[in-house]
Write a protein that binds this DNA or RNA. Structure first.
Length: 452
RNA sequence: CAGGAUGUAGCUCAGUCGGUUAGAGCGCUGGUUUGUGGUGCCGGAGGUCGUGGGUUCGAGCCCCAUCUUCCUGCCCA
């Protein structure tokens, strides 16, 4: 038999990791609930018709497709095989693993809209799957923690997303940079340089500015067919700088002839004002007009969060999508949401050593014994300990005390209660602190009140 | 999905020009004045050298394929 192995890009999580992951999950969850979001869950798999076409062509390729059950090749003929894999796929696979939580959520909203209080605020913490090639901070199975609001255009939602990001990152101790842009600004930008309709190409190139530099960006755009005139009009974009307020002023001049662009600026400024009203400092929040994410569905605000001091992709991202439910037959429902990437947040915290030490949930008290008589004597004490709310266990085998202490040591149990014939006679049990090595003789009641 | 690197004990890694029986540290396990773990001392187990082919008298080492992990790109959390 071959050695067992994991599917590439997937991982097991042992107790140590789960404790830390739960710490992150709980932090995010508590913040979501504080802002009035309610939990839902959706299935791991969806119909491919729900998933396909929502994430662009790249996304369709990265979807994990599930082979139909039973004789999936029954109805195939030679022509199907010759037509290529894309057409073949739709004939042998009709389900897929979900790629994110937003699209299944949109499906959920459409299917349940008459029962949902609008605006509907939900959060969802589940794994998603992408058939990507794994590398640092990129997995094929990973968890997203999403919070979305649908059924309102209010920019208060955008502002609250900013506040939630701020709160979560602060609680986790992560130094971060939250970048905000607006799709309408990108649209305005393409109009302003006379390349209306080319905004996706433009945005994808500009997005790489801080990575490859101005020259390479212009090079790429020229290759994609942008005129020299358009590129020269783009020039002021690269010199936008200063405080967020100063950036707004420069941007207003740049987009003065684009109605859409000006609308984008107005929206952004409104978000800023709301955030300011909550007294949150602007220190970690930055207007970045080169930011481009989720171009296939975001229509308004775009968010991205990066951790400072760690070389890893964005740890959180989101934005507003005006028409996601439109593809499911219900138009006019606007939504805005945020997605926290737990796996990347974990990697960041690990690298920066941000996990609290005393986080481990473990046994507080282990009863050790010298034999069957002592074992039996300990049973009611064990019951008592648990009734008092002390996490306790009794070493289940009759074995040497050395082995029992070693078990406590490995499991990082701070206190052991040693029971021998002497202890049974006097009722004074030996309590040993495994960290200091100190021992004292106490009655069970004293021990439990000390630990409780 | 494109390009590059990688794989030897549970972990981190040595292993010469292709040459006999593949090593170390850590970990694991047993013992060490039998009622005491984490620090000492002594012993022990553990490897089809990622996998499958090929070249050779002979392969951990050379060639091909395949898989894993890591890096870059694209895209993203």
């Amino acid at each position: 038999m071959s050695k067992p192995s994991l599917v590439r890009g997937t991982r097991d999580f042992g107790p140590d990791k789960m404790i830390r992951r739960n710490f992150i999950f709980n932090t995010i969850k508590s913040v979501f609930e504080l802002y009035g979001f309610q939990p839902i869950e959706t299935p791991a798999m969806e119909n491919l018709s729900t998933l396909m076409g929502k994430y662009g062509e790249e996304g369709d390729q990265l979807l994990f497709k599930i082979l139909n059950s039973g004789n999936f090749s029954e109805k195939l003929n030679q022509t199907d095989l010759e037509d290529g894999y894309k057409k073949l796929t739709s004939k042998i696979a009709e389900k897929g693993l979900k790629y994110d939580l937003t699209v299944p959520f949109a499906r959920y909203v459409v299917m349940n809209r008459s029962d949902l209080p609008m605006p509907f605020k939900r959060y969802q913490i589940q794994p998603v799957w992408r058939g990507d090639r794994p590398q640092k901070g990129r997995y094929r199975e990973f968890y997203q923690c999403d919070a979305d609001v649908v059924g309102t255009d209010s920019l208060l939602c955008e502002a609250e997303i900013v506040l939630m990001v701020h709160e979560v990152m602060t609680k986790l101790g992560i130094d971060f940079s939250l970048k905000i842009n607006n799709r309408k600004v990108l649209t305005g930008l393409s109009e302003a340089i006379g390349a209306a309709g080319q905004e996706s190409t433009l945005a994808v190139a500009i997005d790489k500015l801080d990575k490859i530099g101005k020259e390479k960006v212009l090079e790429e755009l020229a290759e994609k067919g942008f005129s020299a005139e358009a590129l020269s009009k783009l020039d002021p974009v690269f010199s936008i700088s200063g405080t967020n307020q100063e950036k707004f002023e420069q941007l207003e001049i740049l987009l003065e002839n684009s109605a859409t662009g000006k609308q984008g600026i107005t929206e952004l400024k409104q978000v800023w004002d709301y955030v300011a009203a909550f007294g949150v400092s602007e220190k970690n929040i930055e207007l970045d007009i080169t930011l481009a994410r989720g171009l296939s569905y975001y229509t308004g605000a775009i968010f991205e969060v990066k951790a400072l001091g760690v070389q890893i992709g964005s740890i959180t991202g989101g934005g507003r999508y005006d028409n996601l439910t439109g593809t499911f037959g219900v138009a006019g429902l606007s939504g805005v949401g945020i997605s926290f990437g737990v796996d990347r947040i974990y990697d960041v915290m690990e690298e920066l050593n941000l996990f609290p030490d005393n986080q481990s949930v473990t046994t507080q008290l282990l009863f050790c014994h010298f034999g069957k008589t002592e074992f039996d004597y300990a049973l009611p004490l064990l019951k008592l300990a648990r009734e008092k709310g002390v996490n306790a266990e009794l070493y289940p085998d009759i074995s040497k005390i050395k082995k029992q202490l070693d078990y406590a040591d490995r499991k990082k149990i701070t206190y052991v209660c040693i029971i021998g014939s002497e202890e049974m006679e006097t009722g004074k049990l030996t309590l040993k602190n495994m960290i200091s090595g100190e021992q004292e003789k106490l009655e069970i009641g004293e021990i439990l009140s000390k630990l409780g």
